[in-house]
Design a protein around this nucleic acid. Structure first.
Lengths: 116, 116
DNA sequence: ACTCGAACTGACAAATTAGTCAGTACAGCA
DNA sequence: TGCTGTACTGACTAATTTGTCAGTTCGAGT
């Protein structure tokens, strides 16, 4: 019986990954790190993502407490998402992750070039 | 058409996560950080994981260059896995991830306690 | 001779995640 | 009036990932 990482794991690494883990969460967070955005702005800023997934991920991250949802409660709807103070504690971790990711991308690129 | 994060993504966060991502990779790395281990030792040290998945993850990480596979080429087989020098560059990132993960676990625990 | 353990592989089933498509409410604009 | 945009939800389908189970090869132990 396959088990998702969402289920509380004893490993703190898994526990952190569970909040970051999702096809687009890294990208979404990356965008939000430069400032709050509306749902539609995010959608346009990450064209490959579907609205459904965007919203699901957004809501999951709100649930996890790392994002804040500001709803003007108007119609038509107007909702902005921002990184919460708690989510901000993630920023330095994301920085590290990103830094390593960049090196890794360079490495992968170099490898696929030498053996196509 | 769902797309896995494995496919080269422009986002460095996703790129890093793709090497860490896998139900048990965090845990496996965590174990290996304290020293090389044989396949069977790892299996016993993480009882919930199946041999199949252990080996798959191990091989994927070898592919990604973060683990080294030392095969004595004897029969019966004797294989040890260790973190490669390149994988070691991941250690500080893992540290950060783990640190945050620990805080998050505490937070989650506090929450579920207050509202069961 | 028989069983066990080592480190796997292949075929396949089940769980989980991602994505599609339709539909909601109502303001603003031509 | 008809159309578009906003931020969603529900019911599904499809892709991906995990996991199950059997089978391999050969040395050591009983």
């Amino acid at each position: 019986m396959p088990v998702s990482k969402k289920e509380v794991s004893a490993c703190p690494i898994d526990s952190m990954l569970s909040v970051i883990d999702g096809r687009w969460k890294g990208t979404i967070l990356w965008r939000l790190l430069s400032g709050p955005m509306r749902t539609s702005e995010l959608r346009r800023s990450v064209p490959e993502i579907t609205e459904r997934m965007l919203i699901r991920h957004l809501h999951e991250m709100v649930e996890d407490g790392i994002l804040l949802r500001h709803d003007r409660k108007t119609i038509p709807p107007h909702v902005r998402y921002s990184i919460s103070p708690y989510g901000m504690t993630l920023a330095p971790v994301l920085e590290k992750i990103c830094e390593w990711g960049r090196k890794h991308q360079a490495r992968v690129k170099a490898k696929t070039k030498s053996m196509p």
